[in-house]
Simulated assay, not measured.
Amino acid sequence: MVVEKLSNTIDLHRELKALGVDSGGISILADKGKMHLIRIRDLHVGAANILKQDALSIGADLAVPKGTVTALTPRVDVLLIATERQLQQLAKKEKAQPFGLKQLSVELESFCHAKYENEISIMGILNANDDSFYHASRFQGNQAIERIESMINEGADIIDLGGVSSRPGSMAVSAEEELRRVRPIIDALYEQRLYEKTTFSLDSYEPEVISYALERGFTIINDITGLANDEVARLCGSYGATAVIMHMQGQPATMQENPAYSSVITDVEHFFRERIAKGSSYGIKEIILDCGIGFGKRLEDNLSLITHQSHYLRLGKKLLVGASRKSMINAISPSSSDERLAGSLAIHLKAIEQGASIVRVHDVKEHAQAIHVWKALRG
């Protein structure tokens, strides 16, 4: 007899299939192998005591503060620990319970339905301005086309072209100036039909620039304002373009001046829900969500959003994370933007592990290799 302890990060479905387990058994056992940790804030103490007993009755558990059983305080924060199957059972149980547990059952069900994307896409960054925070991402003219072709060969699934810096403290430019910067690159890739080789994204929130790109082979609009402009939403809908909705608190010029949240996870989710509804009302079929690392966020906010990326899977959209060479790495381990590749890889692999399916990066080749190795380690 040989006994081996396996990592809980392996592909359990694949492991069960390799053992020859029947399809019905695979479904049941895979659910048992998926663990949920769900924090519930400001819960009625009576609801906490009911939820605790219901959780225990099915083999799950609820961590509660001291004094909960005697209702020492009227409302409490709790932590639910349950497998996928237990979470499904608990959601059903709470539908008939008082103290707001019926509404909680709806929330729990949404986590049951959340699905991870199997395919990971790399979005390569190309800047057509001279003030982006990482100098090695800036290209003009023929060099830009060469860089695009290089990133495609290195493994980029998407190329994200931008003409305006959105780093903290940066100032906006006119739509005319932005178009002047990106037009030669857009025209060149259109003439060379590079859009047949990969997917092109435009990092912009200016309707005039967006319209120009959509007419010339671009199919994704990466909007840091999250469809704040109705005309941008209309253009995405009318052209059938995918919209990347990013969360940002404030504006680039001032966004890092004392940003604050009641709960960054839920505040960002509320924003996403509002903008998803807006995008849908304009006929946008495909939406990608980006929590906006570094856009009006403290270090603790950025870490929380990356670590708990899976929270947003219940919204049913692909998740994008872009932390490439950003200053949060410097806040953890002092370094210049030239020295942050390792930190970028660590953040992006953690985000992928938590459900992100698109990473926006400066270093395509290195990320492609890291993702291939990460997949191999997971079996």
Rank of each mutant, 00 (worst) to 15 (best):
A368P: 09
E196W: 06
T225Q: 06
N258D: 14
Q354M: 14
Q249N: 11
L56F: 11
L29K: 11
R147C: 02
S150I: 00
I81Q: 10
V244G: 05
G237R: 04
D157L: 04
G237V: 05
A253F: 09
G226C: 08
D54E: 15
L29D: 09
C112Y: 02
A213W: 02
K115F: 01
D290C: 10
S344M: 03
S280V: 13
Q143L: 13
G294T: 07
E154F: 01
L320T: 08
K317S: 03
K278R: 14
K326D: 02
I185Y: 03
I293L: 14
E15S: 13
L101I: 11
N118V: 05
I276C: 06
R14P: 01
I185K: 04
A82S: 14
R180Y: 07
E191Y: 06
Y212I: 01
C291M: 12
L303V: 13
V373H: 00
E15C: 11
D160A: 08
R360H: 05
L377E: 05
D54K: 15
S304K: 14
R85D: 10
E286F: 01
A241V: 07
F218D: 02
G226N: 08
Q86C: 08
A172G: 00
K93V: 03
D160S: 06
D77T: 12
H348S: 11
S150G: 02
E257P: 00
P74S: 12
T219D: 02
G124K: 01
E84C: 05
S174Y: 01
S333M: 10
I120G: 01
I125L: 01
I186C: 02
L19I: 10
C236Y: 03
S137K: 04
L305H: 06
A188S: 15
D157T: 04
F295W: 09
A156Q: 04
E107G: 00
A144L: 09
F200M: 08
